[in-house]
Simulated scan of single mutants.
Amino acid sequence: MPDPAISIMIVDDHHIVRYGLKQSLSSQENFRIVAEAGTGKEAIELMAVHSPDVILMDVSMPDLNGIEATRIILKSHPQTRIIALSMHAEKQYVLSMLKSGAKGYLLKNNLFEELVTAIHTVMEGNVFLSAQITEFIVQTAITPGSDDEAESQAIASLTSREREILQLVAEGKNNAEISKLLYISKKTVDNHKRHIMGKLDLHTIPALTKFAIKHGISSLDV
């Protein structure tokens, strides 16, 4: 009896990337593409309908990044395996994604060579990392003081909503734009921003933006 098909959702804000992934994976006998999403928010909405076995999640997306989308999805669907897709090999992106619960991290520069193996690996309950990422993880583990504990604790103190607003602030959106995107009042946005600044001890928008980029909450390429 053949193995049941593995259901997959592709999440990336670039249509050409989604198309390429879909074409590549559709040629595999036991893979079934059940959904595509162009944003983290859309991915969260589609989970209620499709509940895929595996999500291929772009890390850097506007409005709601893959890190936060992963965290939110796994709260309600802990059985889902999420594989991060990224152009970034820097530690802030890798560690943030893995801490959010991703079971794999693939670099887009050699994505198709590793993708099929990665999907089967995470479905078996294991973790799959690109070779370059594996090397980085080892170096991080053996290098004293390689992770800034104080900043990690500061990030952990932020609520999901605060991380979402921090990303939008770093992307240059003002209170009115954030209010419209999140369906909350401008006063509520302002209150969240004050809480974020207090928790991070950063009191200007440029400082918040720099912090968000450094820790993979936002990116220069979105």
Rank of each mutant, 00 (worst) to 15 (best):
K108H: 06
A118E: 01
R161G: 02
L21K: 07
V222P: 04
S160R: 11
I213A: 05
V54N: 09
I196Y: 07
A131D: 06
T117V: 12
L74N: 02
G172L: 07
T70F: 05
Y19A: 09
V11L: 05
I73P: 02
H88D: 13
K173M: 15
S152A: 13
I155Y: 01
M9K: 07
K108R: 14
G104C: 10
N110E: 13
D147R: 14
L111Y: 06
G145F: 05
V59K: 02
I10Q: 01
E114K: 06
A102K: 06
L74A: 04
L85I: 13
S100N: 07
H215P: 01
A212N: 01
H50C: 10
M197A: 11
K75W: 08
I137K: 09
Y183G: 14
I142Y: 12
L64R: 02
T117I: 11
M1V: 15
K210H: 13
A102R: 05
V189M: 11
T117S: 13
L129C: 01
T188K: 14
G66A: 09
P78G: 07
I6H: 09
E124I: 08
V17K: 04
N110H: 14
K193V: 15
E124T: 08
T134Q: 13
G20E: 00
H192Q: 14
T204I: 02
L182G: 06
G216Y: 00
E164G: 00
R81P: 05
I133G: 03
R81V: 04
K108F: 12
V138S: 10
Y105E: 03
D190K: 13
N175T: 15
M87R: 08
I213V: 14
L166S: 05
V34H: 05
H77I: 04
A154N: 05
L106G: 01
F136Q: 10
R32C: 03
N110Q: 12
L106D: 00
L158T: 09
S26P: 02
S160F: 03
T70D: 02
V138W: 11
I67H: 10
K91E: 14
E90P: 09
R81Q: 15
K210I: 03
A84D: 01
M61R: 01
A150K: 13
D201I: 11
K75F: 09
I6Y: 10
K187F: 14
T70L: 02
G104S: 10
P4T: 09
L115G: 00
K214G: 04
S96F: 04
H50N: 13
E162H: 05
M197P: 06
K186L: 06
F112S: 08
L21G: 08
E90Y: 12
S152M: 11
H215T: 00
R32M: 04
T121D: 09
G216D: 06
K214V: 02
Q132S: 12
S7F: 00
I72D: 10
S130G: 07
D201P: 01
S7V: 00
K187V: 15
I178R: 06
V189P: 07
S24C: 10
L56M: 08
L129E: 00
N110W: 06
P62I: 02
